[in-house]
Design a protein around this nucleic acid. Sequence first.
DNA 1: CCGTATCCGTCCGGATACTG
DNA 2: CAGTATCCGGACGGATACGG
Lengths: 144, 144
Amino acid sequence: MTRAHQGNLAADVLDRMSAHAGAPDDRELCPVRDVLDRVGQKWTILVMVALHAGPRRFSALHRAVADISKRMLTRTLRDLERDGLILRTVYPTKPPAVDYTLTPLGRSSLEAMATLIGWAEGHHDEIRQARRAFDAALSQETRP
Amino acid sequence: MTRAHQGNLAADVLDRMSAHAGAPDDRELCPVRDVLDRVGQKWTILVMVALHAGPRRFSALHRAVADISKRMLTRTLRDLERDGLILRTVYPTKPPAVDYTLTPLGRSSLEAMATLIGWAEGHHDEIRQARRAFDAALSQETRP
DNA sequence: CCGTATCCGTCCGGATACTG
DNA sequence: CAGTATCCGGACGGATACGG
């Protein structure tokens, strides 16, 4: 009775969610909103993944993520640091160097995300196919 | 060599992501963006969870999610239908009735989401604590 | 090197009113 | 009942320029 095995854990979580599903979840009360909003932010995942292999400096991250602006990289890193998912270290050299590392909390969150990422990879084709079918059906009823 | 066991699967996914991390992921190429953008949408998860227990009608969903507007409920349902995650069925009664059901694809995606939801529940306190610490440290250096 | 400051367009999403 | 139509504020996020 310590811990359900993989298969039923999901159902367990979902059942608990169904219970208080209609609550006015004002972020303080709803962990799901709080966490998933962050995950949904445009750059969060990419930055976390870039950090997965080890500590990275600001400029290294800027190169790794490629099409992120400095502004958005800074904002994303600040948010993650504030949530305790990454650690920011400043070395008082000249010019100063800064690096970012995943905390244990950050690593565990990344592993939770990996489940979803894996699902995305595995089912992306099905989704794209469903979309094409939907769009095709739509344009046929509009202009027969 | 067929398939890694649970623990290493996450690392496996992440390693593959690290590889092509800097690609100009224009949605067609990057399943991660594609799927996670949807997950990050404000109402997606709540609606999916509401559907978890079984088929629901439009008005039932409207009550279940509580503070969603009809406009946003409609949009969310359309998006999910387009992606093949839910199925919309119209009964030509008078007035018409419509219900929504998770497809097998939708159910499997919900289970992937449940991992993240579970993580969120388990670590929300740590995050809130990290935030308080961060904010406290910030206001001290600004006004000592 | 590592950011902050400022400006500004875009789009998400809420409120409201109307329809078959 | 199950939506669509329209309006609109505000947040998200990019470009650019500047600072320690």
